[in-house]
Design a protein around this nucleic acid. Structure first.
Lengths: 135, 135
DNA sequence: CTGGATCCTCTATGATACTG
DNA sequence: CAGTATCATAGAGGATCCAG
C-alpha cells in the first residue's frame, strides 16, 4: 500500500528521509481540489450541459463573482473544464466539461447521488450527536 | 431540477423570498464536509480497517494532533465514524466506519480509484496550463 | 457580459504546552 | 495514549469598484 501524506516541518524531514513522495499523493492532487466550497456545485451544473458565466452565477445565487471566476479557473487548470470565448459584443463565455472532466464526474457523481439519497440521515446524525454533547 | 445554493446578503434575501432552501442542499450538507483537507485521507484508511488514534497519526505524518482529533470528531458527528474507547491504562481508542460511513464510502471510493488512475493526467494539465499562462 | 484588482474578514489549520 | 487548551497565521472567501 502507498503512504498517504505530505509533511511540513520536523516530521516532514523525517518522512523525506524515508523517501516518501507526498506531493504525488492522488488524494491530495485530485480529491482535495474537487472538495472546495464551490467546485462540486459548478461541476454538477456543468455535468448537465455547458453553461454561460452568468447562468452559473444565477444558479448558484450566493457565490461571489470573484469565487466563480477563480473556481472555474482552477478547474480549467486541472483539465476538467474548457473555457470558450465568443468574441461577440459584449463577450460571451461558455464553460463545459472536457473529456477528463466527464471521465472524472462519472466517478464523482456517485457521491452526489449518495448525498441526494442520504443527506437527511447525515443531518439526523448531526442533530443526535449535538443533543448528546449539549446534554 | 432542484436549485443548488444558499445565499448570504442581498442575494440571499432575494432567494429566500423565492422560497429556496439552501441549508437543505445535499451537496453542501454532505460533499463539502467530505472534501476537507484531512477527511478523505482518514476515511480511506478507516475504509480498510479500524484504526487506533496513533496509527492514523503515523500513517498521515503531516497531520497535527489537533486536526486529527477535530476531523475524526466531525466525521463522528455526521455519523460516518464510530469512536470506541477501551478503558485500559493508558486508554486505547479505536475508530471505525459506521454503517452510514461504509455506505457512503462505497460511492466515494470511485473517486479515489479515479484519482489513483488519473492524478498524473491532472498534474500534466496543470503544468500545461501554467506553461501557457506563464509564457 | 465577463472578468481583474483591491481591501478586508473570518475560518481552517499549525505549533506548542499541558493533562487524565 | 489520546486527547484539550491556547496562541498565532496563512489562505479562503466576500464586498466593492473598475475595465475591455
Amino acid at each position: 500500500m502507498d503512504q498517504i501524506s505530505s509533511p511540513t516541518s520536523a516530521r516532514l524531514r523525517a518522512m523525506q528521509a524515508e523517501g516518501l513522495d507526498l506531493d504525488n499523493c492522488p488524494v491530495r492532487t485530485v480529491i482535495s481540489r474537487l472538495g472546495s466550497k464551490w467546485a462540486p456545485l459548478l461541476l454538477q451544473l456543468l455535468s448537465e450541459r455547458p453553461h454561460r458565466f452568468s447562468e452559473l452565477r444565477r444558479l448558484v445565487p450566493d457565490i461571489s463573482q470573484r469565487m466563480i471566476t477563480q473556481t472555474l479557473r482552477d478547474l480549467e487548470r486541472d483539465g476538467y473544464v474548457h473555457r470558450s470565448v465568443l468574441p461577440t459584443k459584449p463577450p460571451s463565455v461558455t464553460y463545459s466539461l472536457t473529456g477528463l472532466g466527464i471521465s472524472m464526474f462519472e466517478s464523482y457523481r456517485f457521491v452526489f447521488e449518495w448525498a441526494e439519497a442520504n443527506h437527511r440521515a447525515v443531518r439526523s446524525a448531526r442533530a443526535a450527536f449535538d443533543a448528546r454533547e449539549g446534554g
